[in-house]
Design a protein around this nucleic acid. Sequence first.
DNA 1: GCTTCAGTCATACGTTCGTTTGAATCATAC
DNA 2: GTATGATTCAAACGAACGTATGACTGAAGC
Lengths: 221, 221
Amino acid sequence: MTEAVETVRDTKDRILDAAEGLFSRQGFAATSLRQITGEARVNLAAVNYHFQSKEALIVAVIQRKMGPINERRLALLDALESDLPEQAPELERVVWALFRPVFEARLLGVELGNFPRLMGRMFTEPGDWVQRVLGQALGGIVERFGAAARRALPGLRQEDLGWGMLFSVGAMAHYLAGGEILRFLSRGQSNELDQEEALDRLVRFTSAGLRAMVTGREMSA
Amino acid sequence: MTEAVETVRDTKDRILDAAEGLFSRQGFAATSLRQITGEARVNLAAVNYHFQSKEALIVAVIQRKMGPINERRLALLDALESDLPEQAPELERVVWALFRPVFEARLLGVELGNFPRLMGRMFTEPGDWVQRVLGQALGGIVERFGAAARRALPGLRQEDLGWGMLFSVGAMAHYLAGGEILRFLSRGQSNELDQEEALDRLVRFTSAGLRAMVTGREMSA
DNA sequence: GCTTCAGTCATACGTTCGTTTGAATCATAC
DNA sequence: GTATGATTCAAACGAACGTATGACTGAAGC
C-alpha cells in the first residue's frame, strides 16, 4: 500500500540520493541524467522539472548535506570553546571538531549516505564553479577553525596555517574518496574501514602535521 | 623553416601535451578529443590513428611521465641508502626522495609540464581502470618506500604505514591538483607557488604525520 | 618514374548527451 | 463532478561525443 503513493518529496529525494551515489562513484561529468533517473526509477524529465539543470542538481546535492555538516562543525567548536572559556582548546580537539561531522553516520537525523565520498571528490573535481560553490560553503568554517587552530598553536603564522590546512584537507579528502587504494597501500593489512579508527588516525596525523608547520622562521636561504 | 616540417613525433607529442594539460584542468571525462586535437592543432582522426582510443591515450599520457618519475624516486632512495649503508636514513629523507621527483621542474630531460597537476587528479579520478593503471605503476614504489619508512621509524606497524601513506598521498595529491583552493585557504597570505617551499612543507607535514601514526598499541576498547 | 606506405585530412557514422515539449495523470478545492 | 494546478510521462530536439572510412599527400626505395 505504501509503495503506490509516491509524493514529490519522494521523487526529489530519490533523485538526490541516486545522484549523490553516482556522482561519488563516477564523478559529475561521467554521470548522465539517464543513469540518475534510471537508478532513482523516475522519469528523465523529472530532473529538469524539479531542478532546472544538471548543474543546479549538482549544487543541490552538495548543499543538502554540506549545510548540516557545517552547522555541526560550528556547534562542536562552540562546545569546545565554552568548555574552557579561559584557555585555548587542545589542537587535537579543534581538528576533531572539524572532521568529526563528516564521519558521523547520522547527523541531526540526516543520513550522510554517499556524501562523504562525494565530498572527497569535490575538492579535486575540475570545474571552476564547483570550486566556487565549495569556497562559498566553507568560507565561515575556514575562518572560525583557522582562528581556533592558531589559538591552540601559538607561533603558527597565517601562512603556516594555509599550508597545513591544504595538506589536512587533502588527507581527509583522499581518505573519503579513496576506494580500493587504501587496501592497496596497506597491502591488505588495514582493517576494514572502521570510521572511528579512521577519524582518530586522521586527527592524529593532521594535528602532528600542523604542529610541524610552525617554524622558527630562519630565513630559508 | 622549422615550422614547415612537422614530423610524426611532433604530432604525437603535441597530442600528448595538449591532452595532459586539458586532462589536468578538466578531468578525463569532461575533456573531448575535439578539444585536444583543437589545442594541439592536429586532425581529429590523428588520435585514433596514433593511439587506438581515448582510453589508450589517457594511459599513454600517464605512462609517459610516470615511468621516469618512479625511476628517479628509486634512484634517490638508492643514493640515500648507499650513503649510510649501516644505519637507516632519516624519515624526512625517505619522504623527500618520494616527493622530490614530482616537484622537479626538469627530470632527466623530461619536462613535467602539467603532469603534476594531472597526477594529483588521478588519485581521486573515478573509474576502476585508472586506479588499476595507477596501482600497477606504483606497485614497486610502495614496497620499496614502505620498507624504508619502517626502517626509519621503528615501531611503525604495517597497518600504521598504510594509514600514513594514504594521508600522505592525499596531502600531496591535493596540493598538486589544487588550483585556487590554496590561495583561498591561506586567505591570500601564502606566497606564490614556490616549488621548493612547497616540497619542504609537504615533507615536514607528512613526516610528522607518519611519526604520529606509531602508537603504543593499547587496545582501543 | 613508379610504387609503397606512414601520415594527414575532410567527412560522416551511430550513439548518447542535456534539455524541451505537450499530452496524460493525479490530488485538491469548490 | 468539475475545474485547477502540480506532477509525471513518452517522445523528440539539436548538439556533441568517440570512432571509422576512404581519398589525398609526400618522402623513401628501387
